[in-house]
Write a protein that binds this DNA or RNA. Structure first.
Lengths: 228, 228
DNA sequence: AGCAACAGCTATGGCGAGTAGCTTTCGGCA
DNA sequence: TGCCGAAAGCTACTCGCCATAGCTGTTGCT
């Protein structure tokens, strides 16, 4: 009873611990297969039985690695969040700070999400009723908000957007615009990549709309913004 | 084998057909309960066993009314599409044609969808992998596009939007903006109604963005639009 | 009034999640 | 090197759900 789940603390020594490494490899392999299954059968079509079949193992064996099907979903969620965050962070880091970084980051995010639809659905649509991601698994999304918020602040600082863009409200607007494109693309053009469908080409237009939503203050508007 | 499913053609006479009426009532009752179950347990949490339990009947009896669980999903999908369409059509009919009608229609649509989340998810997120709506069930959504397209054309005609707004592209943009708000609201604020959450208040702003996206032609821009 | 269709039932099969408990493998350590 | 305990696999089983087969009582049209 105690030996399952977390298989005891490592032997205190910082040694490679061959055992633990192989275990981790197996876990990753299970998650990879689970992702494949979701791609083939839909997010809610994931079944441990099918994963076991593809792994060449009997279903109960998987319980040595995950406490339940929901545990697998949670691991997939966490891994997806982290990878998604990394992709976006990288794209933003490679670009000129401000609007360019924001645009590049969002586009990279969009590409990754469309290329990893099953995970994207798991992350943003919560299609599995009995699955509630753990707080730990939610942490990266807080980080993503921070990144976007910083990019907006940069854009304001360098005069690409009006001052109101440095706000939570603006972050919501950005995520609303993005989730609109992605939802439409995923629901209506299930097999097309970024740029191939009818919706993602609107992305540049949406970025221009963002600029329109937070215009640089004119001398006239400046007075208004003071009253805040 | 033949007597199940479609229970034979009505007796040709256009009589009230008591039998058929009661049957239809039962079907509606089953769908109502199914909707409740989805609300309680999530869209994919719908089970015929639970419906049977709530209806006070043994599970196999339901197969007298629907060929399968997917059949129930399909009926829910169709009923949802029709009701959603009716709500939007009504709201638009009650408003001044053009931008106002479009706005009222979209808002009514949004309110209805948030008030009927389970159905909304079924309609737009396709969460059930093995469920593909029948062509008949998809027809109302074509009609919705037509409605929106007409409203955009009206808006162009009365000079509320630039001429480019009378296009499929503009319809995509509208649906993108809307689906963004709704997706965000549904995924992140699962228990709040329209107006109570962080996202739907952005709706008026989005409508203003739509106007910004299709500005009335200035004398300068007019020349460009001729080249089309 | 009679009867065919209908609407319910029980029994059964098949499949997936998850648990219990056993056996085998293997790697760390004396 | 060889021991031993934990890890990793297995079989057997329960439970719940979808779906089918086939039976019975009811009901409302003709």
């Amino acid at each position: 009873m105690k030996s399952d789940r977390t298989p005891a603390a490592p032997p205190a020594s910082g040694r490679p611990d061959r055992r633990a490494r192989r275990r981790q490899e197996t876990i990753e392999e299970i998650l990879d297969i689970a992702e494949d299954v979701m791609t083939d059968e839909g997010v809610t079509g994931l079944s441990l039985a099918e994963v076991a079949r593809r792994l060449g193992v009997q279903p109960p064996s998987l319980y040595k690695y995950f406490p339940s099907l929901m545990g697998v979903y949670n691991a997939l969620f966490l891994r997806g969040q982290r990878e998604h965050l990394a992709v976006m962070r990288q794209a933003m880091a490679d670009a000129e700070p401000g609007l360019v970084a924001l645009t590049k980051g969002l586009e990279a995010s969009g590409r990754w999400l469309l290329a990893n639809r099953a995970i994207a659905q798991l992350l943003f649509w919560r299609p599995v009723p009995s699955f509630e991601p753990s707080p730990e698994a939610l942490a990266p999304s807080v980080e993503m908000v921070t990144l976007q918020r910083a990019a907006l602040a940069d854009a304001v600082a360098v005069g690409q957007l009006g001052p109101e863009a440095d706000s939570d409200e603006a972050v919501y607007l950005v995520s609303t615009l993005i989730s609109g494109v992605l939802t439409q693309a995923m629901a209506n053009e299930p097999h097309l990549e970024w740029g191939q469908d009818r919706f993602t080409p609107a992305f540049p237009k949406l970025m221009r709309l963002l600029v329109a939503a937070y215009p640089l203050p004119t001398s006239k508007a400046k007075r208004r913004s003071h009253s805040r």
